[in-house]
Amino acid sequence: MMRGAPTAATARAAESSVEIVSGERLLRAVVHLPSHEPPRAALVFVHPFAEEKKCSHRVFVEMARAAAVAGCAALRFDFSGCGDSSGTFPEADLGAWRRDLRAAFRYARERLGAKRLGLLGLRLGAALAAELAEEELELACLALWEPVVEGERYLTLTMRRSVMRRRLTAHEGGVELDEEGEEEDEAAEIDFDGYLVSREMQEQIAEVDLLDEPKAYPGPTLVLNLSGRAKVSPAMAKLASQYVSGEALPVRQEPIWSTVGLVDAGPTIGATMSWLTRALGV
């Protein structure tokens, strides 16, 4: 074997658990480092909301590992009240999550040894990543996987999906809706498939609107539209057009954020890695 050639062992990225301080909260995170140093770039992963985080966890792990093997460090962290981070989910609000994301971004900048930093987000996480990109104009790249573009519609659809699931599985022993369960609109908290979401969080999510105006972030921006359709949806196309260097791609991929069980995320990861290669040269 040629000296210095990567073997299966050396090509494997190193992974370690770290803690990130965000105000009074402690965020748990995992760092994926490539086998050679310094990393060519680093990506901060921004996870989606509630059940969508759980469903997509494995896909994020696989994407982070693929990035690390290609020489790009990755930081996956849990927002306050999620995963292993401190706090509780019902206490969570988007203000705290925005602070968490900034703390994770600072950590990546100061600790991962990469000169170029990018953001990769899914669903509501993509919306938060897009917001941060408007502040961090030096960002090397921005990857948005099926971003939530209109928070109010996102809330409506998420609640409806929950209702559909309960109604359609009631005949299989699922939970029947009672009148009280269908009158949650005025409650202080709503139940998102078992996640109690505060009224404040609902209002903050409803205010999310990525389509409102042209974006200042000038760097390479990828909008991945994940669905069974062959063409990009009008909303995703419009979002990409608002970026100076925006590109929307359709990826034939089942919904990785709502599918329970293992999902072959190869199409999504493959499309993202190809784009990263073009955008960052990783």
Partner: peptide
């Protein structure tokens, strides 16, 4: 199942301008 039925419902609403 309920997951892909949801996707069908959203697509129908977008295609036909209706609301379920």
């Amino acid at each position: 199942d309920s997951v892909n039925l949801f996707e069908i419902v959203v697509a129908l609403e977008e295609d036909y301008g209706i609301s379920f």
